[in-house]
Design a protein around this nucleic acid. Sequence first.
DNA 1: TATTGTTATACTCTATAACTATA
DNA 2: TATAGTTATAGAGTATAACAATA
Lengths: 144, 144
Amino acid sequence: MSVDKVDTRYLETLVGYNARRAALRIIEAFIARMAVFDLRPVDFSVMSLIHHNPGITSRQLCATLGILPPNLVGMIGALEKRGLIQRERHRIDGRAMSLYATPEGTALMQQAEHEASALEVDQTGRLTAAERRTLMRLLQKVYL
Amino acid sequence: MSVDKVDTRYLETLVGYNARRAALRIIEAFIARMAVFDLRPVDFSVMSLIHHNPGITSRQLCATLGILPPNLVGMIGALEKRGLIQRERHRIDGRAMSLYATPEGTALMQQAEHEASALEVDQTGRLTAAERRTLMRLLQKVYL
DNA sequence: TATTGTTATACTCTATAACTATA
DNA sequence: TATAGTTATAGAGTATAACAATA
């Protein structure tokens, strides 16, 4: 026999389960609304960090976002090919590459971040501003 | 030039970013501590739902957990092969399969859920019990 | 000797199309 | 005609090993 209504009460006591479900919900909406910019969540994160940290290296991006170096190479290459970022050999450490947003990349990210922030408010519409701040603070207490 | 310290302040204003980081942190610990039971997060979720919903169908599992049917088949097959669950043809709807935890599966899940709950407390050690309840409630307000 | 970036490659996860048995 | 489960397969995401250039 099937069950009338699925009892999910146990899983809902787990922070990991709830955080994953919430993240997937928001990311789903993010993908849909960021399609006009042709930016996946990971591309957005990478571009945002370069935008706010001119000269950041690939290694620093990997460490910050938890991306493995081999998996970043293609993304960086694609963003450079699109004219959104520029790569320069690091002035002091010749092994590293410094990354910069181009004027086109900067303009794109100003729009994209504005849209992302608007989307966040939409997706968390059932939360008050205070609850939203609390949620952020508690999540950071978990992973930072 | 690389940057001294990476500025992540903008990304940290996004619920999606924070929820994903927190979820990944907890899931990482989950994978490590559930290895003794040979249960990945998805296996744990599936087994837990079967455990608490005797007779649940594959379709109901898919709808509840957001898994696509073709991707559930192999998991169910593996769990059955391990003797943790039993599949029976649904008594009324001959197309569906009703799923039940075996005594072995039930015993395993009692241990596994106990361990998962303990792990949750460890991973959210920087939160008070009240904060943990608040976090859960706010996350559910986002995705439910 | 260690680190940055890179290539190649394997592995896992997720998604799509099409089939069968039943409703 | 629609749905539950299944098969095969494609695509995206993530991981490991090894290498060249530089520290």
